[in-house]
Design a protein around this nucleic acid. Structure first.
Length: 110
DNA sequence: ATTGTGACGTTGC
DNA sequence: TGCAACGCCACAA
């Protein structure tokens, strides 16, 4: 932690900028950061997101398919889905509905 | 320095 | 159109 996790920090920063009721994909963030091929790294960064003080809305970050792939990493089993549903996002079987509508593209907004 | 892994994405068949 | 395999970058051991 002594070093500035440039990549990680950026991921957290973008994730925190996700508006309420919106979601984004790892690839979108990775692409915005310039490392479109590091989509996996974005997810890896989320691993430490819980360690970050400004709690990163990792529940708003899903894969391109809108699938809650990382929900397994949350406390509960359906916690991530509960959070998304609380924001008005319809999630069925770990799959976000109307993804095109709730999708938030950092490149488009930022 | 090398190897392995990972909450993904894209291309190929 | 659906499923499989590869690629890829960054971090940890």
């Amino acid at each position: 932690m002594t070093k500035n996790d440039n990549f990680f920090d950026k991921v957290y920063d973008v994730a925190r900028q996700i508006p309420f009721g919106r979601v984004t994909s790892y690839g979108a963030i990775a692409t915005y950061l310039g490392s479109a091929r590091s989509a996996r790294m974005v997810g890896w960064a989320m691993n430490n997101s819980g360690n970050q003080q400004p709690e990163v809305p990792a529940h708003r970050v899903v894969n391109k398919k809108g699938l809650l792939t990382g929900k397994h990493h949350f406390d509960g089993t359906n916690l991530m889905q509960q959070l998304l549903e609380s924001e008005g996002i319809k999630v069925i079987d770990n799959q976000i509905q109307d993804l095109d509508t709730v999708f938030w593209n950092p490149m488009n907004e930022l």
